[in-house]
Structure formats: structure tokens, C-alpha cells
Amino acid sequence: METGTKARFSPGRGWPAPRWLVVALPYAWLLAFFLLPFLIVLRIALSDTARALPPYAPHWTGWAEAWNFLQALDLESFATLVGDSLYLDAYLSSLRIAATATLIALLIAFPLAYAMASAPRRWQPALLILVILPFWTSFLIRVYAWMAILRPEGVLDALLRGLGLIDEPLGLMNTETAVLIGMVYSYLPFMVLPIYTSLERLDRSLLEAAADLGATPLRRFVSIVIPLARPGIYAGCFLVFVPAIGEFVIPDLLGGPETLMIGKVLWTEFFSNRDWPLASAVAILLLLILAVPLLAYQRFARKEAA
């Protein structure tokens, strides 16, 4: 019977007839709903602002007329981006806030990951679930939870006042500090998990060998643990830094008028100012900025693998 069925399907080690569908289906989906939209963004970033709906010109009327669009290209939106210091400031402040949040997250996550990896083996799955679980619960709700804590006369103020530590409200809500807290909190699992993974993989005999060769506990930490956790540290920093740059929800809910972040600027340009070409240009420039950490990380990962 086995040989019978073998003959019935296509020969060799390949798949039967619909084999190509396995690749084609997801491929087509991604081309249509991922790549094509980006080409459109690029296209619109290079078109004139217009008050018509949809608010850009020339109007998209069909695939056959693609050539017409190319003739109407202009760089007006990009000129606005470069000319108005608001946008430059927003990009810079996004980078600064994301970098600060990444650093704080690293400082909190490393001891936590180290303690998890050092805990008795049988506890580790439970600890892992504990760290991952908040990641599964709604991002929006977790940010919202901090609103109740940080707002004037909120939970934190009430607690500190109750303890007699402060007289005045801290006034943390709608500040950059609040944004940083929200980011560190939301992205902490992304930092903890890769660091934990690299620490958990660390061969214990390496630490024993270092001790055997006379290294003190501190020396072992600096010379062995940190260098070998480096892949996890880099991955964690990447996973926190990149989404933090383009973050919208956290600066919108926790930040104030003076916390400028590019994700929020894009949102405002699009929904409030209805300047679609400018919003598109903001997006394109943001992508170019994101390419820097992406390429840097890729280079590191490739070097690690070699």
C-alpha cells in the first residue's frame, strides 16, 4: 500500500501539485498589502498637497496612468520637512527619548534576567511566564494603567503623600518622564527575554573555569558574563529602541505638549492637518532613520553568526 500511494503522487522528494501555492499565497498577500502600499506612500510623499478628498493630487485613477504620476512628482513635502525645525526637533527628540528608554530598560532588565537565569531550574518556566504575561495583555491598557498612577492626585501622589514623602503633587503626568516610564514599562519584556536567553545558555563550566583560574566573582561577571550576554543585550536594545522611536500611543497618552515624538507628529499631520503628502514624507524619512539601527544590528548579528 505504501508503494502504491507513493506512485500516485508526484515523484521525487517534492510536494504534490499545489506545491507552488504554499509560496505564492503568502507572497501575493505581502506584495499586495505590504510592498504596494509603501510604493504608494513614496508616491504620495512626492505629490502636491491639495484640499480635495482624498487630499492629494494628482488623483489616483488607475494603473494604466502610472506614468502621469511620475511626471507630477515634486519634493515640496520634503522641503517642508527640512525647512521647518519642528520636524527636525521631533526626529531628534524621538531618538533621544528612545535611547534613554532603552538604557533604563537595560539597567532594569539585566539584573532581572540574571536573577531569572540564576534561579533554580524548576522555577524558571514559571518566572518566564510571569515576565511574558504582561506582554500578552493589552498594550493600550498597560499604558492607560500608568495614567491612573501618574496623574495629579493619582495613585502615586496619594501613596507618597500618605507616607509623608511629598506635600505637593509630583506633576509627572504629561511630561517626558511619564513617557519614559511608559516606554520602559511597555517594552521591558522585549529586553528581558533575549538577555535571559543568552544568560540561560551560558555554559556554567565557563564560570567555574574562570573561578578555577583565580577570577573573583566581580571579575567573572565583567570578563565572562557580560561579553557572553552581548548578543542578548544587543537584541534587547534593538527590540526596545526601534519601536520606541516610532511610538504613538505612549507619547499621546502620557506625554505633554512639549514631548515631541515623530509618531505623534505623523498622526497629527494625517488626522488633524489632513496633509497626506507631508505625513507620507514624514513616514519615508522615519523609515530611512530606522534603517540605521536595523543595518547596524544586522551587521552585528552576521558577525556573531560567523
Binding site: P37, I40, V41, G246, F248, L266, A279, L287, L290
Partner: peptide
């Protein structure tokens, strides 16, 4: 995975 959601959202809407 690394794309800001605002960009993905904007792109899809324009499509």
C-alpha cells in the same frame, strides 16, 4: 516586526 505601526497604518489606508 520593526515597522512603526503608524507607517504601516498610513500605507494601508492610502492603498
Amino acid at each position: 516586526l520593526v515597522m512603526p505601526e503608524v507607517i504601516t497604518g498610513l500605507a494601508l489606508l492610502l492603498l
